[in-house]
């Protein structure tokens, strides 16, 4: 929801980045305020996923220009784990499997690490068990998830639910959901979207990175951005997503070029 005079959570200015020497982001601008839900859409290869990984601090990408301020501080001054502790959360497109590490232990470690950073009490295993089971209800997850290895052998839908469970636990300031809808059947999509909707509040912000409009039927964005060739070339309200659904992405690029020519 858009709140007047809400504080800026994320301010991206002219962000440029490369991977293995190839330029992926070419001057990206984006401002996200507390309480807002943003959707970033665009064709494959437009740089959407790269953008989310750069915000989280993935080492494969090199930032070559521009700036990103998160809650008033330079995001690039923080190591990936520090960003997470400060409240940047990335729900992975492909959550990583960690064989041998029990999910409940992993979840408790991440929860306690972030809590400690926020000056709050850690939970012991029993307290945490109560806490996490409550959160799991939100996502209609069965308790046996806790005893399995992290993401190992999980179905696509189970992995995504495990991601949103962590979002629910860690209570981030900025949650970036990278293609969270991919690989979800319609029931799982509804459950995951419902979870996200309940977690959205006036103090946090959500950035949905998605290829399809489908997710936005469930999580209604305040802003829709279209990304192409490493830049945001159009921004609109939720109706833009519907237009993209019916007309595709090409016209946005054509229109953008026409505007650019007219300005020149």
């Amino acid at each position: 929801m858009i709140y007047p005079d809400s504080k800026i959570v994320l301010e991206v200015r002219g962000l440029c980045a490369t991977v293995n020497g190839t330029e992926i982001l070419k001057g990206l601008d984006l401002t996200v305020r507390r309480g807002e839900v943003h959707a970033i859409m665009g064709p494959n290869g437009s740089g959407k996923s790269t953008f989310s990984k750069i915000l989280a601090g993935h080492s494969a990408y090199e930032v070559t220009g521009g700036s990103v301020m998160f809650e008033g501080q330079n995001l690039f001054d923080l190591a990936p784990e520090e960003r997470a502790r400060a409240g940047v959360f990335l729900a992975f497109q492909y959550p990583i499997e960690i064989p041998g590490v029990i999910n409940s232990q992993f979840l408790r470690l991440t929860y306690n690490t972030v809590q400690t950073h926020r000056g709050k009490e850690e939970l012991d295993p029993l307290e945490f068990d109560d806490y996490v089971r409550e959160k799991m209800k939100l996502l209609e997850m069965s308790p046996d998830f806790l005893e399995r290895s992290v993401n190992e052998g999980f179905s696509g839908g189970e992995k995504k639910r495990n991601e949103i469970l962590q979002m629910a636990m860690l209570d981030p300031r900025l949650a970036i959901l990278d293609e969270t809808d991919s690989g979800l059947d319609i029931d799982a999509l509804r459950i995951v979207a419902n979870g996200v909707n309940q977690l959205a509040n006036k103090d946090n912000a959500i950035v949905l990175v998605t290829h399809y409009q489908r997710l936005l039927n469930y999580i209604v964005p305040d802003y829709v951005h279209v990304m192409e060739a490493g830049r945001i070339i159009k921004t609109g309200g939720k109706e833009l997503a519907l237009e993209l659904e019916s007309r595709g992405y090409d016209w946005v690029g054509v229109e953008h070029k026409a505007v650019a020519r007219a300005v020149a």
Binding site: S59, L90, F106, L109
Partner: peptide, 28 residues
């Protein structure tokens, strides 16, 4: 892998604690 460590880092867990957890899981 780097990806596993990045996943841990994205949840606030530094490389040292991540390695320790992975190894302990591996050896349990």
């Amino acid at each position: 892998g780097e990806d596993q460590l990045f996943y841990f880092a994205q949840r606030g867990i530094d490389a040292e604690a991540a390695v320790s957890m992975i190894i302990n899981g591996f050896c349990k």
